[in-house]
Simulated scan of single mutants.
Amino acid sequence: MGKSYGKDWSGATLQEIVEQLEWCGYECEAGKLHMNVAFEELKRRAEAEAHKEQD
């Protein structure tokens, strides 16, 4: 995925957002996201959305 400083994420899919967060090691200025329950739900929804688009 690579660095994305300044990227407009408004048109990104949930899967693209999850991939970017995973690429950065689940870290940001606020700390780690890996075990964050909201991130886990985002990841679950992204996977469901990706499977829907494939059907």
Rank of each mutant, 00 (worst) to 15 (best):
M1I: 11
M1L: 11
M1E: 05
G2D: 10
G2Q: 09
S4T: 11
Y5Q: 07
Y5N: 02
D8H: 00
D8C: 04
W9D: 05
W9C: 08
W9M: 13
S10Y: 02
S10P: 01
G11N: 12
G11R: 05
T13D: 06
L14S: 05
Q15K: 15
E16R: 11
E16D: 13
E16F: 09
E16P: 13
E16K: 11
I17G: 10
I17K: 11
I17R: 09
I17Y: 06
V18L: 04
V18M: 10
V18W: 10
E19D: 15
E19H: 12
Q20R: 08
Q20A: 15
L21D: 05
L21Q: 09
L21G: 06
E22Y: 11
E22F: 06
E22H: 11
W23G: 09
W23K: 12
Y26H: 14
Y26R: 04
Y26E: 04
Y26P: 05
Y26C: 01
Y26Q: 01
E27N: 04
E27A: 02
E27T: 13
A30C: 07
G31F: 01
G31H: 05
K32P: 02
K32M: 01
K32Y: 05
K32C: 03
L33A: 02
H34F: 04
H34N: 01
M35A: 01
M35V: 00
M35H: 00
M35K: 01
M35D: 10
N36L: 01
N36G: 00
N36K: 02
V37R: 06
V37Q: 03
V37E: 08
A38D: 04
A38L: 03
A38Q: 03
A38P: 01
F39W: 11
E40G: 02
E40S: 08
E41K: 15
L42A: 10
L42S: 04
L42V: 12
L42G: 06
K43V: 03
K43P: 05
R44P: 03
R45K: 15
A46H: 12
A46P: 11
E47V: 15
E47M: 15
A48G: 09
E49K: 11
E49R: 09
E49V: 12
E49G: 07
H51A: 15
K52W: 07
K52E: 14
E53L: 11
E53S: 15
E53Q: 14
Q54Y: 08
D55I: 11
D55H: 12
D55L: 14
D55G: 13
D55N: 13
